[in-house]
Design a protein around this nucleic acid. Structure first.
Length: 308
DNA sequence: CTATAAACCTGCTGGC
DNA sequence: TGCCAGCAGGTTTATA
């Protein structure tokens, strides 16, 4: 669920809170969350590092470290980052008490003054800072990945990612160039990350609605005017998402555990059966490339006459 | 090469 | 109320 706006929003929160903090050590509760290198080397290379900066590339959150490496955090579906002030307890007693439940729930967490308020954290990785704060990576479904790479390898690590939609590179010419090479439905191309990075299922639907383009239109069939409308739509829905602190369904929370407010500003995603605010048609839901896809049949004309 | 399906996981929802 | 099938923000890998 975290798409570009949710990653960017948390990146900004981290930039204001953990730059110059020092990582004493890291606890890993689910080893497969560490995608690179292997866990022992990961732990060894990260202990004692200072965080120099926070960036974002597509849906990857990047922490630059003072040992010429960077951390790349991809939250996939249900990953979240939670910054705990000093005075919180990570209780790992479940590990021995109920190993099966431990694998799913992770350590329980509570304020040391309120041990009765303990709850499962789904914490997979915990970064312990020298000032007593903790950065938790939580992820019920365990799809997310945290990787540590030498900064010199950054080009290779992100070589599959396309244009950054909020950068100066995201021009109508470049977008047109990317789309002209793809015959697949435009929705699928937007989700693929290779042409444009950072757009996921929610913002793809919202951007296509904004641009009044049907999700099944072949990417290479867009007119120059439509490409410009799509560019503007992408930028606009992403900026709006960031402005509202991201879109929260059930899982997404920001660095302080707060839900984002953007759900109430969505116009088509999860709105099937409701009236389009632009033309009053009933918004439909179809499946494109195995993903639920929402659009307005009134103002997003289909690719073929009479096509659904 | 492309298109579709399955896999990775758990929690939640809706139908019966 | 209870159970079970199906579905979810993402991406990679296998199969056809």
């Amino acid at each position: 669920m975290p798409e570009l706006p949710e990653v960017e929003y948390v990146a900004r929160q981290l930039r204001g809170s953990i730059v110059e903090a020092t990582i004493d050590n890291v606890l890993v509760f689910w080893e497969r969350t560490i995608g690179h290198p292997d866990v022992p080397l990961f732990l060894n290379q990260i202990a004692g590092c200072r965080i120099e900066g926070v960036r974002r590339r597509g849906k990857h959150l990047i922490l630059d470290l003072d040992n010429a490496h960077f951390l790349s955090i991809h939250r996939r579906m249900t990953g979240n980052l939670l910054l705990l002030p000093p005075g919180w307890v990570l209780d790992t007693s479940l590990r021995e008490a109920d190993p099966v439940a431990w694998e799913t729930k992770g350590p329980s967490i509570y304020k040391e003054t309120e041990p009765s308020n303990a709850k499962s954290s789904y914490c997979r990785v915990c970064f312990n800072f020298s000032d007593g704060r903790r950065l938790l990576y939580t992820d019920p479904r365990k799809f997310g990945l945290i990787e540590l790479w030498p900064r010199a390898d950054e080009q290779d690590v992100f070589s599959e990612l396309g244009l950054e939609p909020l950068s100066e590179d995201f021009t109508v010419e470049r977008l047109a160039c990317v789309l002209a090479k793809r015959k697949s439905p435009i929705k699928q191309v937007l989700l693929a990350q290779k042409g444009v990075a950072g757009i996921g299922n929610i913002y793809a639907d919202e951007a296509l609605y904004h641009a009044q383009i049907h999700p099944l239109r072949p990417a290479d069939s867009l007119t120059p005017e439509e490409v410009e409308r799509l560019r503007a739509g992408i930028v606009s829905v992403l900026l709006l998402g960031i402005e509202h602190g991201g879109t929260s369904f059930t899982d997404y929370r920001d660095l302080w555990g707060e839900a984002g407010d953007n759900y109430s500003h969505l116009l088509v995603y999860d709105h099937d059966g409701q009236e389009c605010k632009r033309c009053n048609s009933i918004i439909k839901r179809i499946v494109v490339a195995q993903r639920g896809t929402h659009f307005c049949p009134g103002c997003q004309p289909p690719p073929h006459p009479r096509a659904r």
